[in-house]
Write a protein that binds this DNA or RNA. Structure first.
Lengths: 351, 351
DNA sequence: CATCAATATGAGATCGATCTCACATGGAGT
DNA sequence: ACTCCATGTGAGATCGATCTCATATTGATG
């Protein structure tokens, strides 16, 4: 049998005072005599008392808990890093995080929202929300919501990344190295939703930057160099899209000299195809990744557009806290900037 | 102001019955008239009632929550996969998981334990517990504990992996391919703790298998081919140990023909060094990884000893549930088997 | 028709911490 | 001496769901 752990009442009895007095000592509110305080503190030690967060939450209507609904963090380290950042920043403010994987399904996502409502989390953060209805449920329950890298509805806080600027920086780098025949391997533009405030999806923004960059230097755009597909294949769970796209690109009569990818995971697939074809990087081909997740462990280490993953999580949590402490403030949108990290996968155009 | 969400009382009033009756309908326990049941269900719909898990937990002394303390899941996908598996299996049984990173510190780990005690989780699962004192705190609080891949103290459930067998399988593969001059790149043997039931650390078990395998075919063991180091360098947060070890091995007068690594992350570093040296894999060198985490995204795709990551998490959760439902049962230790996955990084010895 | 069991419902205690309010004490100020 | 206020403490309500126990009604049974 589980020995019931000590409660406030046990401490009170031990110290010979009332529960109210013990509560005052522990929450440091109200007047307490010096001698009494010491007796209570001693009693806390003797009984091994630990507050029951359930009981406290019931009374105070605050759970000091944040719900985080994320996309599959085992498939893309991006999500793991953001989750970690939220957890870390939350702890620094006394909050624990409930992590929930939406598992690529609207229904799962809504199930997660139900969970969080029932557990009365103080706020919900979404990394890549899918279903506007999920957000509507939370609105109905008057719970603060923060969206990361999405803007499904305009009535919540959001932390976005300037994907256009990120892709532009990557492209500028390649162009400066002299490349003009640059391929684009990106994700499905329709995979990620658009909104009134953000008419272009994440993928489209990156592709826009690609086109604009080429146009900016007067280079022609060859549609055969643009490959858009799903990041993950459901059948084997890993990225094979980048591999397939690269294979196809290598069979073109006129190969590209550089590749810009919309994601490190795609870039990893491309590298595998390049390795099989016995091409050296960056000598025979320059490759730029996006996200800077697996970029550092690949061979060669990848030049990549780094997303501010830690910043994203941290900012999201801070927005959530602001909403919690200050219910009803105007929803904010914060846009963060990615930056290019140059490593060993890009080099000047030869010849 | 936050509109207080509907409570049992609201539903009761709406349906014109008592709270007890509503509770009976919702928990499907006890007698309820058919007509009353319908009225209550309608009232639940009308009021948008959602149970308050805090209140329920306070009364039932069950939170339907599992605490999971893990090592840094952003640094090694192994931890992310295990965490995901626990989350998934927990949800299937009505449990939510609190994930907590021990951040490589005993003090952090203990802080996590305190959190979990205060939040009254029903059980705590550790992926790589560090500090026996953490376990002692939980024992004092009479909370079920499951250790994954560790056996710090013998008085809790544990799910282990047969590392010796895994390493043996990897070595057998290389030996069968004709390799005899095989290097070993592994983690610090003292990094992971030993215990009375498990006198050899995880790293030592793998190294033991390496030595025994070579001895088994009458090959000599060259200590210059054995490199043990820390998996992660604190300064840059990524694995550089595998890279450095490989560099050194390549400078030996008599190079190895194959490399056995204790972790995919180490193998990734080794691949980077091999890439720089312009060696082809598996033609010039065979490489075997461990864990099967990043093995599939590297170039070439890595032959690796796969840990049963999903199985580990699932089994741990099930052990936890057994303890919860059946307090006081004898602690169990379950040992799972890894298995070798052959991909494109190993080939027969040339010449 | 009396009795008993099955069915149906409600009143009120309970889980543990917090918070309001009442009350008691003592010293300062007039 | 009397008021006033700062200080110190306790009684009891409260948060929302669950659970025990009491009570009421119905139908079956001998």
């Amino acid at each position: 049998m589980k020995p019931r752990s000590a409660t406030l009442l046990d401490v009170a009895r031990e110290a010979g005072v009332s529960r109210a007095t013990v509560a005052r000592v522990l929450s440091a509110g109200g007047y307490v005599g010096e001698e009494t305080r010491l007796r209570v503190e001693e009693a806390v030690r003797l009984t091994g008392y630990r507050p029951n967060v359930m009981a406290r939450s019931l009374r105070t209507q605050r759970t000091y808990t944040i719900g985080h609904i994320t996309a599959e963090f085992t498939q893309n380290p991006f999500f793991a890093h953001v989750a970690r950042s939220i957890e870390r920043e939350g702890l620094a403010h006394g909050y624990k995080t409930f992590l929930y994987n939406q598992d690529g399904s609207d229904a799962h996502e809504r199930a997660g929202v139900e969970q969080f409502i029932e557990r009365r989390v103080d706020a919900v953060i979404f990394t890549y929300p899918r279903d506007p209805q999920s957000l509507a449920m939370l609105r109905a329950a008057a719970m603060p919501v923060v969206q990361i890298e999405r803007d499904l509805t305009a009535d919540t806080d959001a932390v976005l990344v300037d994907n256009y600027a990120g892709a532009a920086a990557g492209m500028a780098h390649l162009l400066q190295l002299g490349h003009r025949r640059i391929a684009f391997i990106g994700g499905d533009p329709d995979l990620h939703p658009r909104s009134s405030r953000r008419p272009r999806s994440v993928e489209e923004e990156r592709l826009d930057a690609y086109r604009d960059a080429l146009a900016g230097v007067g280079a022609s755009i060859d549609e055969k160099l643009i490959w858009l597909g799903r990041y993950y294949e459901p059948d084997n769970g890993i990225n094979i899209a980048g591999y397939r796209a690269m294979k196809a690109l290598l069979e073109l009569p006129e190969r590209p000299t550089a590749i810009f990818t919309g994601c490190d995971v795609l870039a990893a697939g491309a590298l595998q195809a390049l390795y099989e074809a016995n091409l050296r990087i960056p000598d025979d081909m320059s490759v730029v990744g996006f996200d800077d997740t697996t970029a550092r462990i690949l061979a060669p280490r990848l030049t990549s557009v780094a997303q501010p993953m830690t910043e994203l999580g941290k900012t999201a949590l801070q927005l959530a806290l602001t909403q919690i402490d200050n219910s009803g403030v105007e929803p904010q949108t914060i846009i963060l900037s990615p930056h290019l990290i140059v490593r060993n996968s890009t080099a000047p155009l030869r010849g």
